[in-house]
Design a protein around this nucleic acid. Structure first.
Lengths: 193, 193
DNA sequence: TCCATCATGTAAACAGTTACATGATTGC
DNA sequence: GCAATCATGTAACTGTTTACATGATGGA
């Protein structure tokens, strides 16, 4: 009984949520997710559900009313047990650790950039994060009456983005103490344009 | 000229920071990092630096004053250029997206847990995150006079953990409106112990 | 009927983990 | 000189991406 990977756990969870569904439907969920963590590539999902079925965690039956060959997968009893074990305490220690952040990673190597490039980096990051925040806010509006956790998940995403935004403001201030306090500025060349 | 992966970029960056150093020294950095993103496994690092050297991004020379066979790697000119291209704007879009969070992922599937398990999950998560926060605070103290970005990197990690903490408080409140407002409680059974 | 796109995969290449192996160095 | 651990890998396995292939379906 090996430990599930994040992707395996998420697939079991989605099938548990959606009821019997095809691998394609699972994929569609990942593709629709705003998180870049989930690529939803076919080469990942199709072999994965087959694996889970061979392990006895999923059961499947043919779709009817269509000539498509894809099958409908559902949680087998062992699958439900495994899913519960995957997400209930005790939590794996690494899940509580510092979440990865490619911007933070890059900041550690700022010494190779020129001051101008550094400013451009932070500028672009702040604008991009603001866009993301707006997208998640839309998402939040759209799930006003969705499942109870759906909303909290979206609020978690929002919270992490806002923390990043505040941190980037701090970085900007450190790069240029005189100017970093406000909203992200347009680039200098555009200031009088 | 393929795009660098996160790990490749980070390795180039570290070698740029440390000056000529062995693969082992690079590994040691990853192993010392508080982020679980960087496993620093030997099987990842050694082949990686060889690959980077074959691509002309690293140069190497033998160590002297020792009989060890590991070599000292340094950034080749092409490596420095590639590193700059990797971290300077334009940033890859996914780097600005919602950072992955295994707790958030799991919350999406809370429907399979009992109310008690949900509370235990959140309780344990809050305690674990608090511990992590304390560890990062220590880290911050220890880099009072380190490189200028080192401190901002640590503050970024701290910011993301604190955002998670606040979000978990919100989740706790949603699970149990009467009790979620304060600091994480001890488990019920221990309240009078 | 034909085209777009939906749905379902597969194969090759690659990266990363785990587990093992082994020589070098240091401390006692 | 011996043990511990530092340093340097390697091999097998597994999972994921990329890129391709192809049949089904629905709309013009």
């Amino acid at each position: 009984m090996r430990q599930l990977s994040e992707l395996e756990g998420a697939v079991l969870g989605i099938i548990g949520l959606e009821g019997p569904c095809t691998a394609y439907a699972v994929r569609a969920r990942f593709l629709a997710s705003p998180s870049p963590q989930w690529s939803g590539s076919a080469g990942a999902i199709y072999p994965l559900v087959e694996r889970l079925e061979r392990r006895g965690l999923l059961s499947s039956k043919a779709q009817k009313g269509t000539r498509r060959k894809g099958r409908l997968y559902a949680l087998a009893p062992a699958g439900r047990r495994t899913l519960r074990a995957w997400l209930a305490p005790p939590l794996p220690g690494w899940a509580l650790g510092v979440p990865p952040d490619p911007l933070r990673t890059r900041l550690g190597f700022f010494h190779v950039l020129s001051p101008g490039e550094r400013q451009a980096f932070v500028q672009e990051a702040r604008e991009g994060v603001s866009l993301q925040i707006r997208a998640i806010r839309e998402d939040l509006k759209s799930c006003r009456d969705a499942a109870p956790w759906r909303r909290l998940v979206a609020r978690g995403a929002l919270a992490s983005l806002k923390a990043r935004q505040a941190w980037l403001r701090e970085v900007a201030a450190a790069l240029d103490p005189a100017a970093g306090a406000g909203r992200p500025r347009r680039r200098r060349s555009a200031r009088h344009g």
